[in-house]
Design a protein around this nucleic acid. Structure first.
Length: 489
RNA sequence: GGCCUCAUCGUCUAAUGGUUAGGACGCCAGGUUUUCAUCCUGGUAACCGGGGUUCGACUCCCCGUGGGGUCACCA
């Protein structure tokens, strides 16, 4: 039997980083086993519908390269669905749930309940005061069939509840082993709401079975409701899939990762200049460790090495500092041309226009200094025009103003006579300046420090060779002249 | 509170009865360099507590403690 996994989010309008990891693991397993990975939209809560949410979700999946094999897909901006077991959007599957609900009802495995939310609230309150577990009291369990018929025919609001059988329920979790719970702890869960929509518990079981899902990989918060699902599988006479409940992603204070303490949406991270592949790599290692001594993994490696049984049981703090480092690793590995393309949108957004050739040179030079793509916005300024700076920083710690000025003049004069081809390569600029220094019997520091500051306007910057190469002859000369003029003698 | 669940450096993790408890991020120090970044070297820092089992426990069992999840006509 072919492995089929699925990611089944409720459409909130963005992709949570925890969701990204869940989707990723589903994807990795499916790819590794040559199976299918599908996306299902769980939009059975009409009150929380977010317009355009599915489109946004698919767009995010596209950007992180985790588009599903089956399910909704974006075609020219519109949502279409591909696959043989659709529809993949639950609100389009109502008849399916109704039909299965009827099966349960006919078999006596579920019952109609007319209790108002007021009564339920009151009941819950009483149980809390009495320190009892808050469960439905089966008030409507034994309603006569004719009364049920009469009241529902009269249009009285009602729901369908699962009749939890006696005994205990256990299931295998690939990550955690056997989990057992006494059915007395399980509530008579609502299966079909009064608006005719199924609850998550009903829909997830019916859909996972009908969609032939073999592995349910989802967050740890679902463990406690899994017994309900297992009971439903049994009542339907179906085999349950394998369950794998992933550890939670945590805030630095170990609470469940939340918006309050930073960004949680993949879209936010991309907007902040993180690369999709870095984000995927980072998130893959939160709760999973393929090799123990390797941090950077290409997606193909992850596919090859992924192993559900190696997933950790405890929650993982989402550590921004390590994400930053990892992103920097990925940025460094980009070619300058790739970086130009990646960085452009951020410059555009900041309203900065810059010559393509210059930008590519900047990328080549600044790559190792960039942690996020947005860093480019600041970096670029110093190349477009010299930042204002205190002439005092032109003076190297082991020299004085007169020496710095003399050396700047010397470098300027030397560069003004140099062949044009020298400006085409960093190495040639370097060789030329170093040959000049040697020929005059000067020291590197005395010459290079002021030259570099003159070109960058900053105490810390790339080397003067890189700067001169990037800036070109004219701008280099202009900056040297400016620095010389600023050093009054 | 009931139920479920988890527990190795600050953080992400390796170790599946015998290791000086390893790696990575961060931090610190040194090297290279005109400076910064990169790079290289080194350092800092952990088995939650108590009982067992065993010749021997981070590893197995029990209890405790602490954390988390969940107790909706939300997913």
């Amino acid at each position: 039997m072919s492995v089929r996994t699925r990611f089944a989010p409720s459409p909130t309008g963005f992709l949570h980083v925890g969701g990204l990891r869940t989707a990723l693991y589903n994807y990795l397993l499916a790819r590794q086993q040559s199976g299918q990975y599908l996306l299902r939209i769980e939009d059975t809560d009409r009150e929380r519908l977010v317009p355009g949410a599915v489109e946004k979700l698919l767009e995010a999946f596209g950007r992180v390269n985790l588009l599903p094999d089956e399910g909704p897909r974006l075609v020219n901006g519109a949502v279409e669905q591909v696959g043989d077991v659709g529809p993949y959007i639950q609100s389009e599957r109502l008849p399916v749930y109704q039909e299965h609900a009827k099966r349960l009802l006919d078999a006596g495995a579920a019952y109609v309940c007319f209790c108002s939310s007021e009564r339920l609230d009151g009941l819950r309150k009483q149980q809390e005061i009495a320190k009892l577990s808050t469960k439905y009291d089966r008030h409507c369990l034994s309603l006569p069939a004719d009364e049920v018929l009469r009241r529902s025919a009269a249009g009285e609001a009602h729901v369908l509840r699962l009749r939890v059988p006696e005994g205990e329920t256990s299931f295998e979790d690939v990550i955690r082993g056997t989990i057992t719970i006494n059915n007395a702890e399980v509530d008579d869960q609502v299966l079909i709401k009064s608006d005719g929509f199924p609850t998550y518990h009903m829909a997830v079981v019916v859909d996972d079975h009908l969609m032939k899902i073999t592995h349910v990989i989802r967050g740890e918060e679902w463990i406690s409701s899994t017994p309900k699902h297992v009971i439903l599988y049994r009542l339907f006479g179906w085999d349950a899939p394998l369950f794998a409940h992933l550890p939670l992603l945590l805030n630095p204070d170990k609470s469940k990762l939340s918006k309050r303490q930073g960004d949680v949406a993949v879209e936010d991270y991309l907007a902040k200049g993180y690369l999709p592949e870095a984000l995927v790599n980072f998130v893959a290692l939160l709760g999973f460790n393929p090799k123990a001594d390797q941090e950077i993994y290409a997606i193909d490696e992850l596919i090859e090495l992924f192993d559900l049984t190696k997933i950790n049981k405890s929650g993982a703090v989402f550590d921004q500092a390590k994400l930053n480092w990892m992103n920097g690793q990925y940025v460094m590995k980009k070619t300058s041309a790739e970086l130009v393309a990646l960085v452009r949108p951020f410059l555009d957004a900041a309203g900065k226009t810059i010559d393509a050739a210059l930008l590519e040179k900047i990328c080549a030079i600044e790559k190792t200094r960039m942690e996020r793509l947005t860093d480019i916005v600041e970096i670029v300024d110093a190349y477009v025009s010299v930042p204002a700076f205190d002439p005092a920083i032109l003076v190297w710690k082991k020299a004085d103003a007169a020496d710095s000025k003399a050396n700047l003049v010397g470098v300027r004069d030397h560069l003004s006579t140099v062949e044009e081809t020298v400006w085409t390569e960093i190495g040639l600029v370097e060789a030329s300046i170093k040959a000049y220094i040697e020929s005059k019997g000067l020291s590197n520091g005395n010459v290079l420090w002021p030259t570099r500051v003159a070109l960058s306007g900053r105490a810390a910057s790339p080397s003067p060779f890189e700067l001169a190469w990037a800036l070109g002859k004219d701008e280099t000369m202009r900056r040297l002249d400016g620095a010389i003029a600023s050093l009054a003698t």
